[in-house]
Design a binder for these strands. Structure first.
Length: 894
RNA sequence: GGGCCGUUAGCUCAGCGGUAGAGCAUUCGCCUUACACGCGAAGGGCCGCAGGUUCGAAUCCUGCACGGCCCACCA
């Protein structure tokens, strides 16, 4: 490493190590084979092959890589499986948009060629994405790359489907489903999002068949009235009691429809009478079921009105039909009222167009029993969610689960492994054949004409199998047994139900064990105003651009340090510069340390543990104690997936304690003439810095790998990679409350003197002389024992004792750590300014002393508070009172 | 309609029973031989509101307000 540059240049370093990690198979678990302990295993949430990585991916994968590297550093076998998801509708949509630009549809291309085009295109996309993950530094096990639609995963999909089928957990039925007219497919309930949209509430009058008054219904979708087969009212609604059982004449169609009574009707809404359109509204579908009402399908899967809607409307789009129905109702005098009305509209989560509830024949997975297993796993602790607050929404969703519509009328996906005999399929009670391969013949009629179901499975069906399909399930291999259950799944809360819950259910069903023991739920990366990043808002930050500009480590660290469990991250470019600066700080502190070490490292490195305690100075013992604390604290936090807090602890330790205090103090000996005295700070610098870099490595892998390479001989290590060097250790014997307390007192003195210098406008070049007086001998002894620290850090020419009361003329005063400091500043000091300064300080102390005195005078406090608390307050009071007395003394003589 | 989360310095957020911290931003002083992507110092907060529990509450409890998210069949 060239130590000439003052500023870290990330690009060459990243390129070098990225290639080295990969070529050395640093993260392969295939070669290593089963060890004695459980490995740390993560399967990647496979990104859809729809384009390039965005910041959300960068966050998700940074967090996973942090965990993987962290556990590898601590000696655990790790396996992080890379892969991508074929992405079903989302991916097909991208391709269809491309075709549309050429004026074509997928039907112009044809099913087979279209799927072929998608395969080619998605594999390019896959390469891009995986390359970007590599660049992010992800320690993935590249030998295991998987794709949700490759042959191995197809095997798992078929096995799962057959398993469900055999157990009666999968069925085909005509049900109300969410239909995306634009995508031309059914969607599951959770693939529908709801948007508040402006609309109207139209009041339409339906006369009785006999021509008498009838009643008015209120609706937001007048075009569906063509499919009405009843009007429902609440059974106890006085207004309509007399009409229940009567027959209405549906306007525009003349169809006879009954008035039925149903509890589901809310009397206070609209007119209190609901038109019932069983074929196009999930509620109405249920009402119809209860009353044996017929279905009239007036909207087709193409979003156009069907012949059943009547010749005047057939072929019109939903929107056009609405206009015409309203016009016709108005003309017939049926439209009574039009109110503005905001209501939520279900939209497709992929294309945001309004979803049409339709009755359609689809495949469903029966969820109740599956959900019960998953519920049990989370309740008895086999599965835990971090942060815990997501557990409740998760269990509630599972408790209220409905059957999962898994068939999709698109072409890109796993074809449903079901076959129909062309001759027998129309017979009542016909059971289709289930299997991946085309059956040779129909078992009933021996006919060989068999058609495969044209639909494909929901993309989430294959995603749900991911934690075990990537390990070769359904084959019961040693590899699967070794890696399953995996350790943790890292993902955003937006797919908790869509994906996490379904993996739990299918894993428990297929293997009887949870697919992962923990789910670590992170937030969404937003812009700095908290808005979701989107191309249309123009607020997208491209992670690749950020990596080019500031370095990968800076991007990773800025994401990690903000990733508080479950919380969204308001991300801005400024937050990366802070991390870039931190990387530079690491670079320069290593530069400093190396400059102060011998040219070549001695055999076995610089000794630390063999140094005699007497050879260690207070600051050495202090930084080692602080270092041990930082290690301990970081480990505690990581255990709880408190990644952001862990990053913060390391940041604070390295920058504040190590650089700003220890490195400065180490200079005293390093720049001194006593060669023997240099051994201790050299060893401490090398060991503490190297250890801290190791702990930071999961967060900033590139720079720490680079710096470790330069430092390792000095700590007696020879590992080729940081992650093979072992975790930093420091025994309990290095804990030292005494050192931390004593340094704390000295730091207080230094800060007080610096403040004073600054307030007195003493130029930094001016070496000042300081007299210390008063205090207990314990405090004086400490001060003068380490007077060199204070002299050096506060830039003093001398620090010496003065007899009590001897205050030099023209001096400024500071009180710290039980002592009074006088700084003679002839010519520099302004007496009236100094008086003001002291009076302000006196005022502040008086308030504090009074507050504490009142507290101590409170009989309730004295009798009820714990003793250590009382003693603490007494100490604080004594301290404030003493400082006050000193300052008042000084003021008197000023 | 239900649930969850949030409301702390100008901004972003920590703290979660002993009256407040960090980073960034601001101001002032410094090219102090690791680092100006730096060093030192300063200013800035009745910890959303109202009650309650407690010797003591930003911290626990109960309401309320505001913001965000999730779920739900109000046509």
């Amino acid at each position: 490493m060239s130590m000439l540059e003052k500023t870290y240049d990330p690009q060459p370093v990243e390129k070098k190590w990225c290639a080295a990690w990969r070529s050395s198979r640093l993260f392969g678990s295939k070669a290593g084979g089963p060890g004695s302990d459980r490995p740390f295993v993560i399967v990647i949430p496979p990104p859809n092959v729809t384009g390039a990585l965005h910041l959300g991916h960068a966050l998700n994968n940074t967090l996973q890589d942090i965990l993987v590297r962290w556990h590898k550093l601590h000696g655990r076998a790790v396996c992080w499986v890379p892969g991508t998801d074929h992405g079903g509708i989302a991916t097909q949509n991208v391709m269809e948009r491309q075709l549309k630009a050429e004026g074509k549809t997928r039907h112009d291309v044809g099913r087979e060629p279209f799927v072929e085009m998608m395969r080619t295109w998605s594999s390019d996309c896959k390469k891009t994405i995986l390359g970007q993950l590599d660049r992010l530094g992800c320690g993935l096990d590249w030998d295991r790359e998987a794709f949700t639609m490759d042959p191995e995963r197809a095997k798992a999909v078929h096995a799962a489907f057959e398993h469900y089928w055999a157990k009666g957990l999968i069925y085909r039925g005509e049900r109300m489903v969410n239909w995306c007219v634009r995508c031309g497919t059914a969607l599951s309930d959770i693939e529908v999002e709801y948007e508040e949209r402006k609309g109207h509430l139209w009041h339409i009058h339906y006369p009785l068949k006999d021509g008498s008054e009838g009643l008015a219904v209120a609706t937001t979708r007048p075009e569906t009235m063509l499919g009405d087969t009843a009007v429902a009212v609440h059974p106890s609604d006085e207004r309509y009691k007399g009409l229940i059982g009567k027959t209405l004449s549906l306007p525009l169609t003349g169809r006879d429809i009954p008035v039925v009574a149903d509890d589901a009707v809310e009397s206070s809404f609209g007119t209190g009478a609901v038109k019932v359109t069983p074929a196009h509204d999930p509620n109405d579908f249920e009402i119809a079921g209860r009353h044996g009402l017929p279905l009239v399908k007036v909207i087709g899967p193409d979003g156009k009105m069907t012949p059943e809607a009547g010749s005047a409307y057939a072929g019109l789009s939903r929107e056009k039909a609405r206009d015409k129905v309203l016009e016709d109702l108005k003309a017939g005098g049926h439209l009574r009222k039009t109110d503005d009305h905001r209501h939520s509209v279900g939209v497709c989560y992929r294309c945001l167009s309004a979803v049409e509830p339709l009755v359609s024949k689809q495949w469903f997975v029966r969820m109740k029993d599956l959900a019960a297993q998953a519920l049990k796993a989370v309740q008895d602790g086999r599965f835990r969610i971090f942060p815990e607050s997501w557990t409740k929404p998760y269990t509630e969703w599972l408790s209220g689960i409905r059957d999962w519509c898994v068939s999709r009328q698109i072409w890109w996906g796993h074809r449903i492994p079901v076959w129909y005999c062309t001759t027998c399929r129309e017979q009542d009670g016909y059971t289709p054949l289930v299997g991946a391969d085309r059956p040779a013949a129909c078992p009933a009629c021996k006919g060989t004409a068999l058609d495969q179901d044209p639909d494909v499975l929901d993309t989430w069906f294959s995603s749900a199998l991911w934690p075990f399909s990537v390990f070769g399930w359904p084959d019961k291999s040693e590899d699967l047994a070794y890696h399953y259950p995996t350790t943790v799944l890292v993902t955003g809360y937006e797919i908790l139900y869509l994906w996490v819950a379904r993996m739990q259910m299918s894993g428990l069903e297929a293997l009887g064990q949870v697919p992962f023991e923990h789910a670590y739920i992170h937030g969404i990366v937003r812009d700095k105003k908290g808005k979701k990043m989107s191309k249309s808002l123009g607020n997208v930050i491209d992670p690749l651009v950020m990596m080019d500009k500031y370095g990968t480590d800076a991007l990773r660290f800025s994401l990690a340090v903000q990733a508080h469990p479950g919380k969204d991250i308001p991300f801005s470019e400024e937050s990366i510069t802070g991390s870039r600066n931190f990387a530079n700080k690491l670079w320069n502190s290593t530069r400093f340390v190396l400059m102060n070490l011998p040219e070549t490292a001695p055999e076995g490195g610089l000794p630390l543990k063999t140094l005699k305690p007497s050879a260690l100075d207070l600051c050495d013992r202090w930084i080692l104690a602080e270092y041990r604390q930082a290690l301990t604290r970081t480990r505690e936090l990581m255990k709880e997936y408190e990644v952001a807090a862990a990053a913060d602890v390391l940041y604070g330790f390295l920058w504040d304690r190590f650089c700003d205090w220890y490195v400065e103090l180490a200079k005293i000996r390093l720049q001194g003439a006593d060669e023997a005295a240099k051994a201790a700070p050299r060893a401490v610098l090398a060991h503490v810095l190297t250890g801290t870099l190791k702990m930071l490595h999961p967060f900033m892998p590139y720079i720490t790998e680079e710096l470790y390479g330069a430092l390792k001989p000095f700590v007696g290590e020879t590992a080729d990679f940081l992650l093979r060097s072992g975790a930093p250790e420091l025994g309990a014997e290095w804990e030292s409350e005494g050192a931390i307390r004593e340094m704390g007192r000295l730091i207080e003195v230094v800060k007080a003197l610096r403040t004073l210098r600054s307030e007195m406008c003493a130029p930094p070049g001016l070496r000042i002389s300081v007299l210390a007086s008063g205090g207990e001998s314990r405090d004086r002894d400490l001060l003068f024992k380490y007077g060199e620290y204070v002299r050096f850090l506060a830039r003093l020419s001398e620090l010496k004792p003065s007899a009590d009361g001897e205050r030099p003329q023209h001096s400024a005063t500071a009180v710290a750590s039980g002592l009074t400091f006088f700084v003679p500043l002839e010519g520099v000091i302004d007496l009236s300014k100094e008086r003001q300064r002291l009076e302000k300080e006196v005022g502040r102390l008086e308030v504090e002393a009074a507050r504490l005195a009142a507290k101590l005078a409170d009989a309730d406090f004295i009798s009820r508070a714990p003793r250590e608390q009382i003693e603490l307050s007494q100490g604080q009071h004594a301290d404030a009172a003493a400082r006050l007395a000193r300052l008042k003394d000084v003021l008197k003589t000023l």
